[in-house]
Design a protein around this nucleic acid. Structure first.
Length: 328
DNA sequence: AAGTTCAGCAACCGCATGATC
DNA sequence: GGATCATGCGGTTGCTGAACT
C-alpha cells in the first residue's frame, strides 16, 4: 500500500498546458490568490488539473516577473558559484536570481552550463577564470590587502555562516572561531585566504566551497584552496580512507617533489584544520613562493593534473591527483 | 525529402519536511 | 507522539523542434 495519490489521477489532465488553462489559472489567482491550498484550487478555478500541476505552472511560468531566455554571464557566474558552494539546491540558487525559477536554472545547468564548463580546456588561463569565479576575488598584484579586505571583496551573495569568522575593522585583525569558542587569531601569520571554513564547518554538512564544482569537473575528493594575497594555490588529494593520516606524509612528499620539479618552492603545513580534515588531506600553508620573478611568467605555468598511482594495503589502486595554479 | 539523433525544456513523480489534528 | 495531509524540492521523463545524415 503506497502513498495516497494527491488527486484523482483518472480525472485530471496531464501534459502541456493550453492557453485557455493558463488564462483560467491566471485569472483565478489574480482574483482570489492561491488561498493557501493548491489541492482545492483547480476545482475552484474550473481546471481539470492536479493541484501540484497548477502550482508548478504558476510558479514556473505564469506568475509575474518571470524571466525566460538567455542567461547572462553574471548569472552564469552566480549559478556556478552557488553550485560550487551548496550543490544542487536549485531553489536556493533561484532565490539569488530574480525572475528565474529553480526549474529553469536546473535545466540550464543540466543542458548548457555544465557542458560549457566541462569543455573548458586544461589551460591555466581557463582554469583561472573558473576558479576565480568559484572562489573569491583577489586583489591586484602587489596590493597588500588585509584578509578582511579580501573578504569584503568576495562575492556578496555568498553568505558565510555567522560563526564562520569575525573581522575587526579597526585593527585589521582576522580570526576564526569554532563552536567551542576556540578563537584563532591569524594576525600574526598572514592568512592565505579567501576564507577557509573553520573545521567544524568543513567537516560536517557544509560542503567545501570548492568541492562540488571541482567534482563535477572531474576532480575528486578533497581540495582546499587558498590565496596568499596575490596568489592562489589550489590543491586536492585523494587518499584511501583506511590510510588515515599516514597517507598524507607520503602524498605530501610526492606533491612537494612534483611541485619542486615544476619550479616552485612551497612550504607544507599539515596541521591547520583538525583531525578530520587532516586525515583526508593536507594543507599547504601560506608560503607559496614562485621561483620566477616575473608574475606574467607565473601566470603561464600550469600545474594541472599530477597523477599519482599507488595502492593501499589491499592492493587496490587509487589515484592521487594534484592540481594547483597560481593566479592573481 | 525522409529518417534519425540530439538538445532544450515543460511537466511529472516521488520523497522529505513541516503543519495540523 | 503518531498519523495525516499539503507543500516544496530535486531528479527524471517525455515531447518538440532543430540539426544532422
Amino acid at each position: 500500500m503506497g502513498r495516497a495519490p494527491c488527486c484523482d489521477k483518472a480525472n485530471v489532465k496531464k501534459g502541456p498546458w493550453s492557453p485557455e488553462e493558463d488564462a483560467k489559472l491566471k485569472e483565478f489567482i489574480g482574483k482570489y490568490g492561491t488561498g493557501g491550498n493548491w489541492i482545492a484550487l483547480p476545482q475552484k478555478a474550473g481546471l481539470k488539473r492536479c493541484g501540484k500541476s497548477c502550482r508548478l505552472r504558476w510558479l514556473n511560468y505564469l506568475r509575474p516577473n518571470i524571466r525566460h531566455g538567455e542567461f547572462s554571464g553574471e548569472e552564469d557566474r552566480i549559478i556556478c558559484n552557488l553550485y560550487a558552494s551548496i550543490g544542487s539546491r536549485w531553489s536556493v540558487i533561484a532565490a539569488q536570481l530574480p525572475g528565474r525559477t529553480d526549474n529553469d536554472i536546473k535545466n540550464y545547468w543540466n543542458t548548457k552550463l555544465k557542458k560549457k564548463l566541462l569543455t573548458i580546456p586544461p589551460s591555466l588561463q581557463e582554469k583561472q577564470t573558473l576558479y576565480s569565479s568559484i572562489t573569491f576575488q583577489t586583489p591586484p598584484p602587489n596590493d597588500h590587502h588585509t584578509s578582511h579586505q579580501l573578504l569584503n571583496n568576495s562575492s556578496s551573495f555568498y553568505d558565510f555562516p555567522s560563526n564562520f569568522m569575525n573581522t575587526d575593522n579597526t585593527s585589521n585583525s582576522f580570526f576564526v572561531h569554532d563552536d567551542h569558542n576556540n578563537v584563532t587569531d591569524l594576525q600574526s601569520s598572514p592568512p592565505p585566504y579567501p576564507p577557509l571554513p573553520a573545521n567544524n564547518l568543513l567537516s560536517n554538512n557544509n560542503v567545501d566551497v570548492y568541492e562540488n564544482c571541482l567534482n563535477y569537473l572531474g576532480f575528486q575528493d578533497d581540495q582546499y584552496s587558498m590565496c596568499n594575497n596575490s596568489q592562489m594555490l589550489m590543491f586536492e588529494s585523494t587518499c584511501s580512507s583506511s590510510e588515515g593520516g599516514n597517507c598524507n606524509k607520503d602524498h605530501e612528499q610526492k606533491q612537494k617533489n612534483q611541485i619542486k620539479q615544476e619550479g616552485y618552492q612551497i612550504t607544507l603545513d599539515d596541521q591547520v584544520l583538525g583531525d578530520q580534515v587532516k586525515n583526508q588531506s593536507f594543507m599547504i600553508k601560506n608560503h607559496v613562493t614562485p621561483l620566477h620573478d616575473n608574475l606574467e611568467e607565473v601566470k603561464q605555468l600550469n600545474f594541472n593534473s599530477y597523477l599519482f598511482h599507488d595502492s593501499d594495503e589491499n592492493k587496490t589502486p587509487y589515484y592521487q591527483k594534484g592540481m594547483c595554479s597560481y593566479y592573481y
